[in-house]
């Protein structure tokens, strides 16, 4: 019986860390009432060195406009393979976009930063419109954006 319990304890200990290596995270981006068309938004992550690590969401489905998401485009060359399966509609002025993703735990408290690039038709581009470091302490907080983004935050 003791052997069984020991085996169970061991395998449970091995299993739990694996289960806990990812968690659902909700990213919330609210736009200002800037008085223009729907905004294209690139939501992506950079690592501790400031280098592009990957994209979490693209709001806006037409690749020909991605060059106006300047920082994201500079890092990716507009490669749509980066955003297959994580692309949705553009977001209207004053609206709030909520995306829930299953994100790796390794992204948090490891120097990664969440960024939003924004672009609106016939208006100025908004590279790195908002950014927030991905830390446990920042969860539930909101940061202000610069041009089109009113606020950016995440919860988990």
């Amino acid at each position: 019986m003791k052997k069984i319990l020991a085996a169970l304890a061991l395998t449970t200990a091995l299993t739990l860390p694996g289960v806990a290596l990812a968690r659902p995270v909700t990213l919330t981006t609210t736009l200002k009432n800037y008085g223009g068309d729907g905004a294209y938004l690139a939501i992506y992550v950079t690592d501790a060195k400031g280098a592009y690590a990957g994209t979490l969401w693209m709001a806006g489905g037409k690749a020909k406009y991605y060059e106006h998401l300047a920082d994201w485009y500079r890092a990716t060359g507009g490669n749509t393979a980066e955003i297959n399966g994580i692309t949705g509609a553009s977001v209207g002025a004053g609206r709030t976009l909520e995306i829930t993703l299953d994100l790796a735990d390794a992204l948090f408290d490891a120097g990664y930063t969440l960024h939003v690039d924004a672009a609106v038709e016939d208006m100025r581009d908004g590279p790195n419109d908002a950014s927030v470091p991905l830390t446990s302490a920042n969860a539930g907080r909101e940061v202000q954006g610069r041009r089109y983004v009113a606020s950016l935050g995440y919860s988990m």
């Binding site: 994209t55 979490l56 994580i86």
Partner: peptide
């Protein structure tokens, strides 16, 4: 399609 295998998604 599934999200890209960029290491960010669990």
């Amino acid at each position: 399609v599934a999200p890209p295998a960029n290491g960010l998604f669990g």
